[in-house]
Amino acid sequence: MGTLKHISWRLVNVVPVLVVVSVLTFVLGHLTPGDPIEAQFVRTHTAEQIDAIKLSYGLDLPVWRQYLNWVGDLFTAGGGNSIAQGREVFSILWPAFVNTLILTVAGVAICVVFGVLIGAVAGLNHGRLLDRLSMLVVQVGSNLSVYWFGLVLIWIFALRLQWLPVSGMESRGGGGFGDLVAHLVLPGFSAALIAMLVLARFTRLGIVQESNSDYVRTFESQGLPRRRIVGKHIGRNILAPIVNITGLEIGTLITGVIFVESVFNWPGIGTQLLNAVYGKDYVLIQGGVVLVAMCYLVVNLLTDVVVDVLNPRLRRA
């Protein structure tokens, strides 16, 4: 089966997942206890006005109609109106989403660079002191609470050493790209931590396993220099698993990002969602969940496609 066919097959597979996600999101939103709209407007509006608002949210319709309306809103009406803020959900979420995206991309970059680096150093020194030390760091690091790790970083690098800004996304009055990068270092690192260590572990394992494989022995028996075996053959063979793990860890990373947003006051989607929880703004949360789910699906699809392209068994029709 050719790569193209494989990719289209994957695309087709995404559709049912999307449907399931949207249904689940919708149902969960409707399980919200109490009456969010009453709670929001009871102090400021009369009973008639509240009923009118409920009508405008289509709450008198049968559930399946509500679902269809909501799906329609996702495409045409910016995900419906937020209960608390009254504006279109996507127009509220979009700027926050972009901020989150910036942080996530920084996190992924840190995760991949340092994860592969730590894993490679450990794997290439398998069994030696450097390997043991790296693995100790990985083990301790994997058991750090992201939230707490962020705090400790702030305390050390922002408060004691004063190398980096404490929180937020930009200095007062803005400061251009350099300023953004400075603000990204600590949160990016905190958000990447867990995924990075997972990646390091897999990279190390991959290198150790490939080093013991028969084909490496073949090239060793021909006297191919070690660095060439590592650089070309082992490198090429662990590439696909590394991409795959990175893709899988995006979920962990996004979770990390949302913890981190709270620690560093990053104006991202996590902050919006947490506020919405307290405001019982289920429309906003539904929109946010759909947005994140879409990203997640896109990332997964891309990962799958890259892994497929890297797999020689699929490269030929």
């Binding site: 028969d214 084909y215 022995r217 073949t218 028996s221 006297g223 053959h233 090429r236 063979n237």
Partner: peptide, 21 residues
């Protein structure tokens, strides 16, 4: 010595070549 003066072939040809090249 390896390769140039001594060559070796192994038991399992299925895994003795790099699958990616």
């Amino acid at each position: 010595f390896r390769g140039s003066r001594i060559g070796m072939i192994f038991q399992n040809p299925l895994s003795s070549l790099d699958p990616s090249f």
